[in-house]
């Protein structure tokens, strides 16, 4: 299978502060899902924006079907963005409050003139139907929609240009669970019907588990573990992935409380500002940390069929 999108050594920052330190990602031709797991401050949203060139890259490369995305001219970029679309988290105000559902979904069609003016209305209604919404919503404005309806309108708009790759940034985290379930089913259906490739950015491990073939775990702007989603979530190796996995509540009652989940780690705000210095960025919170972890920055290496950036990966295996 060939690559749809390849990201190599991507470095991103805000001003002089680097927040993403050399990340590699790979999305195969669809249907294929790459999960990006990370908590707040991990740089996951910025990576998603950088793929669409909404955020400038400091270094590294992004290649889409053999074309270098970072050096594209305006015309090339416009063509690229027809094939690669971004689905925002609902809370981000992804819909213009002054635009009806009809004009919002028709906007990409009008910009790229892919559909004749007279046929746009039918096309918009067809897109709405594809995401499970009725054409009675056409005249509504975003604030007249429920959270689930808004998110589907955002997806319908992203599908209007028949993209090959979607960047889904926390597509369900603002939604109630039953609504989330239906949006997840929608994404599942679309990936098969449209042969979509996508990058799924989420903090919800269960969502990643359900919708991605492989995934990466980000911690403070660097990949700490990468592998097949099933392997990684059933037997996490990196201490951070293990902590994430352990923190997920299991459905049901009677689980004995873990004894040592509590840490008084550094506040997230100041950790963001710390430069990528010496040593492992997770060492301060890590139960396995040894002296070497604070002096040498671990690099990704292959252990047990996956890549992991941890000096003590082998010891982790035997835990």
């Amino acid at each position: 299978m060939s690559d749809l999108l390849t990201v190599r050594g991507l470095r991103l920052g805000f001003g002089k502060t680097e927040v993403v330190h050399g990340v590699d990602l790979q999305v195969l031709e669809g249907p294929y899902g790459l999960g990006v797991i990370g908590e707040s401050g991990s740089g996951k949203t910025t990576i998603g924006r950088a793929v669409l060139r909404l955020h400038p890259a400091l270094d590294g490369s992004i290649t889409y079907r053999g074309c270098d995305v970072l050096t594209m001219t305006r015309v090339e970029l416009s063509a690229y963005r027809r094939e690669v679309q971004l689905v925002f988290q609902d809370g981000d105000g992804a819909l213009d409050p002054r635009m009806s559902v009809q004009s919002a979904i028709a906007e990409p069609l009008a910009i790229h003139r892919t559909v004749a003016r007279g046929e746009r209305r039918d096309r918009v209604a067809a897109l709405l139907a594809e995401v499970g919404l009725g054409s009675d919503l056409l005249a509504r404005y975003p604030h007249e929609l429920s959270g689930g309806e808004r998110q589907r309108v955002v997806i319908a708009r992203a599908l209007a240009l028949e993209p090959k790759l979607l960047v889904l940034d926390e597509p369900t985290s603002a939604l109630d669970v039953t609504v989330q379930e239906r949006v997840l089913q929608l994404i599942e259906r679309l990936r098969e019907h449209r042969s979509l490739g996508y990058i799924l950015i989420s903090h919800n491990l269960a969502v990643i588990d359900r919708l991605s073939e492989s995934c990466v775990v980000l911690y403070q702007g660097a990949v700490v573990e990468r592998g097949r989603t099933r392997d990684l979530l059933t037997t996490p190796l990196h201490p951070y992935t293990r902590a994430l996995r352990a923190a997920v509540p299991e459905l049901g009652v009677g689980r004995p409380p873990s004894t040592s989940r509590l840490t008084d780690g550094p506040p997230q705000t100041s950790s963001l500002l710390q430069p990528a210095g010496q040593g492992c960025s997770y060492a301060d919170r890590c139960p396995l940390a040894v002296k070497m972890c604070r002096s040498q920055t671990p690099v990704l290496r292959e252990v047990a069929g996956r890549e992991i950036a941890c000096h003590r990966a082998e010891d982790s295996l035997s835990l």
Binding site: A129, G132, G134, S135, E144, G148, Q185
Partner: peptide
């Protein structure tokens, strides 16, 4: 029950979602 809600045909949203109706401009 969930699947039946998910068919491509237009589906009424579950009652779980509140619907506020306000004109825009």
């Amino acid at each position: 029950l969930l699947n039946s809600e998910m068919m491509p045909a237009p589906t009424p949203d579950l009652q779980g979602e509140p619907r506020r109706r306000r004109p825009a401009a």
